[in-house]
């Protein structure tokens, strides 16, 4: 086995890319945020350029934010929104991945159904929100339906693209080694599509959250959107702005969570390959 040894000597390990530069940009970002907050505070509290009733200073917003965190009503609204978001997203993932795989994999469906999917994707579904509330009522159902409607299309279309781009030779390799039918879907098509689906889910989650808040805004009996609307109605601008910040945090945490999931479930996938597509 001298031959084997000599080959091993030739195997140079693949170089790792350095991860430099990240912290520098983070610091810069933090600096910019601090500057904006400072200017805001100065403009309202010290120079009185804007009446506090319209735009409360950051300190007031921060106080309102802390108050929210100990307010049971807030946590109730939070649970309401998150529950609807979760149910809507799970439905969207199940339907989106199934439909996406089927349409991507079947040429017949691709030529007949896919054009309609693109059409629906580009339709401003937000415009349908009042209709949903009219038909499904003020409760959870209309919100779940909105989350689903907004989230499902990016998931379908990304999964579809993933399934279409599964390399033909991977399918050939599967067939050569006896992997057919369901096993082919399970062992080749699904894993090859997974990174695309996850990118779609990430996008769908962001849109779904918008759908949830919008639904609550337009006609709701609970949830963060409803609470925000109520605060704004009562002219409690500090609480309203704090609510908006809470929503930004929730949206970003959701995205970060799915990003972690992508790293976990698809460690082989190079993020840079997919960035331009979504």
């Amino acid at each position: 086995m001298t031959a084997t040894v000599s080959i091993e000597a030739l195997n140079a390990p693949a170089p790792r890319r350095p991860r430099a530069g990240l912290s520098r940009w983070t610091w810069l970002l933090l600096g910019v945020i601090a500057a904006i907050l400072l200017i805001w505070e100065a403009a309202v509290s010290w120079l009185h350029l804007v009446p506090e009733a319209f735009l409360p200073p950051p300190t007031a917003v921060f106080a309102a934010f802390l108050q929210l965190l100990v307010d049971p009503e807030f946590w109730q609204a939070f649970a309401f929104s998150m529950q609807n978001l979760l149910i809507g997203l799970v439905l969207a993932v199940v339907v989106g991945v199934t439909v996406g795989l089927a349409v991507g994999w079947s040429p017949v469906l691709r030529f007949t159904v896919a054009p309609f999917l693109w059409l629906l994707y580009s339709t401003p579904k937000v415009a349908l929100a009042p209709l949903f509330i009219l038909v499904l009522g003020l409760g959870n159902e209309s919100k779940i339906a909105l989350v689903f409607l907004l989230a499902v299309f990016p998931i379908i279309l990304n999964t579809m693209e993933g399934a279409v781009t599964v390399h033909a030779s991977l399918v050939s390799a599967g067939r050569v080694y006896g992997v057919n039918g369901v096993a082919l879907g399970w062992k080749v098509i699904l894993p090859a599509t997974l990174p695309y689906s996850l990118a779609g889910i990430q996008r769908g989650a962001a849109l779904g959250f918008t759908g949830e808040v919008l639904g609550e805004f337009l006609g709701g009996t609970g949830g963060l959107g409803h609470m925000l609307e109520f605060a704004a109605y009562q002219f409690q601008m500090d609480e309203a702005i704090a609510m908006v910040i809470v929503m930004v945090i929730i949206a970003n945490l959701t995205l970060a969570l799915i990003a972690v999931l992508r790293k976990r479930l698809a460690p082989w996938y190079d993020d840079r390959q997919i960035m331009g597509r979504t």
Binding site: L170, G178, A266
Partner: peptide, 29 residues
């Protein structure tokens, strides 16, 4: 199973390690 192919473009499964890719050749046996 009487014929195996070494593909021009490798056709490896990117989500599998080297070991699991090689195992793929046996998996359905």
């Amino acid at each position: 199973p009487d014929r195996a192919v070494v593909f021009q473009d490798y056709a490896l499964l990117p989500w599998r390690t080297v070991f699991d890719n090689v195992k793929f050749g046996l998996e359905m046996q």
